[in-house]
Amino acid sequence: MNVPRIKGTHNAMRSGMMAAEAAAAAIAAGRMRDELTDYQDGYATSAVRKELVKVRNAKPLLSRFGTSIGGFLGILDMWTTTLLGGFSLFGTLKHGKSDAEATESASKHKKIEYPKPDGVISFDKSSSVYLSNTNHEEDQPVHLKLTDPSVPIRVNLPEYGEPARLYCPVGVYEVLYDDDGSNPRFQINAQNCIHCKTCDIKDPSQNINWVTPEGGGGPNYPMM
């Protein structure tokens, strides 16, 4: 993915074609099940890599300096890499932490009060899930596997306010309480899942493993 352009399709297609060329050549040479090193070598000189070289610092600059300054530096840097054949004053900046590790404890941050949806321009999650046409057979194993089922309530809730409730864009994850506010329980509404994979990425405890559900399950996007 070229981050500043939010474009990945052409590179996904190019890498598919490159893998195909390497596999076709290997099969024609009578090879099988070895490593397609031609593909790896081809990537090194490919148009895909050339493009990623030019924009390599855009994302780390945003992470370090924020949207205004980081964005400004990113634009300057893309001019530099474009005009100077890939050279950048920043060299190649590192990303550092994984996204899960970047999550900070809830006590360090203010709760965000979001405005209520007006039902005209902004909407709630349940009416949105409906428009994703997602569907899963109910009687199947939950395809969002918790490595340790106690972690959401024991670790994530006190430390991070169990952010799965918030990062999941279709309300798969809920914390339920008794009427008196005691006895928190973690609930997974797997049938709502739209296969975005955010939970697998962002869970600060890396305790959620997204696996494939039964065939045909998931969203049915008409023109997305």
Binding site: K59, L62, S63, K97, D99, A102, T103, E104, S105, A106, H109, K110, K111, I112, Y114, Y160, G161, P163, L166, Y167, P169, T198, I201, K202, P204
Partner: peptide, 11 residues
Amino acid sequence: HLNYRNPWLSP
């Protein structure tokens, strides 16, 4: 971007 720090954020 999923490297956001505030766990109260809701995309």
